[in-house]
């Protein structure tokens, strides 16, 4: 024992940053986040700017447009244009913003709501039955349909899309948290704390909840991935974010009618969407392998 005290948390962090899946996925996610943040610098055109004369052009098309002062400047449409002549390259870059905002918001709200409800269900027997029946019912409605139903009620917009995607994710978090709470409260160290006179709120925060952090980070990462997909699906079906806002789903929805002639309208945003979700999933996989104690114990 050379070092006086290595905390288990620090050991875990050390394990995480050595995991290749975390490294690759994390680097990709970071790149996409940067892309979203620096969209005004990376984009070559205003993503909403319509240019009727440049409609439906293939990738690499070069043209001239008038800038704000009325001067003609050359412009390259790196990924071509859509049916309204908007620059797909810039729209794809700006689209990262919506996807990331939706992904992170949904994960954050779902985790907070899920932890609160899950702890109540896991620790207070009187609430358990009712809460879990409610969650069963929510789980019985397929997630995308539930999201469609919720979003169809409100005017379309970012907030309603986020709520619509969050609702079906909550029961999954609740189940996870509840099962952890139920198993942890049987642990001798929790019983020792009970006999030590530790009050229930402190007992939860000190001994029970820390055990949910690692699984929730993993689960939260996977929620980000699935929320990005569902947002794209809703937008693609025409019931998500309003069509004038550039999102990957909207760009693809735009391209549906002319897909047979101009497949790039769908394939490029599809590719970047797939890459983003892949990156997040890889990160999640790596985190699960390093954080999930059941897995770690087997080694």
């Amino acid at each position: 024992m050379t070092t006086a005290s290595i905390s288990p948390a620090r050991q875990t962090v050390r394990r995480i940053i050595r995991n290749p899946s975390v490294l690759i996925g994390g680097a990709l996610v970071l790149a996409i986040v940067l892309m979203g943040l620096m969209a005004p610098l990376l984009g070559t055109r205003d993503p909403s700017k319509i240019s009727p004369k440049d409609r439906n052009q293939p990738p690499g098309y070069e043209s001239t447009v008038r800038d704000s002062s009325g001067k003609k400047v050359p412009v390259e449409y790196r990924l071509g244009t859509d049916t309204l002549g908007r620059d797909i390259y810039s729209r794809v870059i700006y689209g990262a913003r919506v996807s990331l905002v939706v992904g992170l918001s949904v994960a954050t709200i779902a985790v907070i709501a899920g932890v609160t409800i899950g702890v109540i269900a896991g620790f207070f027997r009187w609430a358990d039955g009712i809460i879990m029946r409610l969650m069963d019912a929510l789980m019985a409605i397929p997630a995308i349909l539930l999201a469609i139903a919720v979003v169809s009620l409100f005017s379309s917009g970012l907030a309603s899309v986020i709520i619509a995607i969050t609702v079906p994710e909550v029961p999954r978090v609740v189940r996870l948290v509840r099962s952890i709470v139920l198993s942890i409260r049987e642990e001798p160290y929790v019983e020792a704390a009970i006999t030590a006179g530790t009050r229930t709120p402190l007992l939860l925060f000190r001994h029970v909840l820390p055990n949910t952090i690692a699984p929730l980070i993993v689960q939260g990462t996977f929620i980000v991935a699935s929320a990005i997909i569902v947002e794209a699906i809703l937008s693609f079906l025409g019931i998500g974010i309003p069509p004038e806002i550039p999102t990957w789903g909207n760009i693809m929805a735009e391209g549906r009618s002319v897909f047979q002639l101009f497949p790039h309208n769908i394939l490029y945003p599809g590719l970047i969407l797939g890459l983003t979700v892949l990156a997040v999933n890889m990160l999640g996989d790596g985190l699960r392998d390093t954080l999930d104690p059941r897995f770690a114990n087997k080694v």
């Binding site: 991935a225 997909i229 794209a232 699906i233 693609f236 693809m252 897909f259 497949p263 769908i266 394939l267 599809g270 590719l271 969407l273 797939g274 979700v277 892949l278 997040v280 999933n281």
Partner: peptide, 9 residues
Amino acid sequence: SLPVFVIGY
């Protein structure tokens, strides 16, 4: 990671 509609197209 690939959404159904991307694979479809």
